[in-house]
Design a protein around this nucleic acid. Sequence first.
DNA 1: GTCTATAATCAGATAGAC
DNA 2: GTCTATCTGATTATAGAC
Lengths: 210, 210
Amino acid sequence: MAECNSSAPAIAQFATMPQYTPKQEAILRGAVRVFLQSGYAGTSMDRVAAEAGVSKQTIYSHFQDKEGLFTALMERMTIRRFQTFLGMERLQGEPALLLRQFAEGFLNHIVDDEYVALLRLIIAESVRFPELAKLYGRTVIQTGRQLMTEFFQQHPELGFTDAEAVAHIFIGSLVSYVLAQEIFYGKEGFPLERDRLVESLLALLLEHGG
Amino acid sequence: MAECNSSAPAIAQFATMPQYTPKQEAILRGAVRVFLQSGYAGTSMDRVAAEAGVSKQTIYSHFQDKEGLFTALMERMTIRRFQTFLGMERLQGEPALLLRQFAEGFLNHIVDDEYVALLRLIIAESVRFPELAKLYGRTVIQTGRQLMTEFFQQHPELGFTDAEAVAHIFIGSLVSYVLAQEIFYGKEGFPLERDRLVESLLALLLEHGG
DNA sequence: GTCTATAATCAGATAGAC
DNA sequence: GTCTATCTGATTATAGAC
């Protein structure tokens, strides 16, 4: 039973977060800001130490090296996002209302500066740290898509023959909108307001085959 | 007329590519591989020099510094992608056929390893080089969306009240699919085949309100 | 213009005092 | 466990020969 079964889903390995001491928490809190701002290679351990208010050697006494600190931090942030999704349990309600709530809740409450920064950093380091990207894919993305897939399956009146594909279209439209707005256009002006995206997305899904 | 009008569209500034000497071409070709693989901070000028087959000083005699080399390289790659879009001129044809051709053409021909790597690098460096991300947004993304918006406007029988929003949904679904597949899941298995995405996407758009 | 060699700085990691 | 001080190697950029 203690054997590591490599065919077990990765989620099980990360469903519980490791506990950290207050000192380790301070280090991680300092590391968040620097890594999210400057990326892995652009972050120096000196700056992490300064930001966390500890000495560099203290970091090395709690984490093996820079890679160990980075992966511990990223796994923690990923699992946290994952657990907020798990808190939703199951999506229920009238499609017209629930889909609107999901879309607006995602755009207005789930997405914040830290969400965008985490997404950007995972994408940025997906060559050097491919396992972190896969962890995010198998937990956050897969869970969100699964929730939406089950919802569509429970509503055959919507007329979707491939609930999983529609779930991707729905969530992918929202995520790509955030990426476009926050990264490719910048704060000063995006020619597509949130409401317009939500209205057209709902119209496509709800008036499908109607 | 020689004055720089800051309200002019950014595209005009970059519609023509600067010409480079053969030596500069060699440097840029070497730089592509290293920067796309390792990111900005993770790339050393020594490795660029080795990859390009020139000495480091030769690079500095042609480009101001590391930032100058990086921005020149990224602008060039962005403009190239932009110009392949411009080559399309205007989208025409029966919606059921053209939308399928566009989606499959994007997934099977436009998207390759270099496309993904460029997208990843622009996202990764959008904090340090926000202007590069905006250049990509105002050229590649805006052009693609504009082409699709005009197509939808020329086909009112599809019943879309907001062609621009639907254009984002169409293209955003494709781009987010590529990001999910290539970055968040990895090569070894993605639970949603391309055909399923295309079929559901076309069904949503063509059977809308039908 | 291009190269080799070097300057000056910075970063990851460690030693040793307390 | 925590800190100050330090080591070692890598990195950006430049000097000077050809």
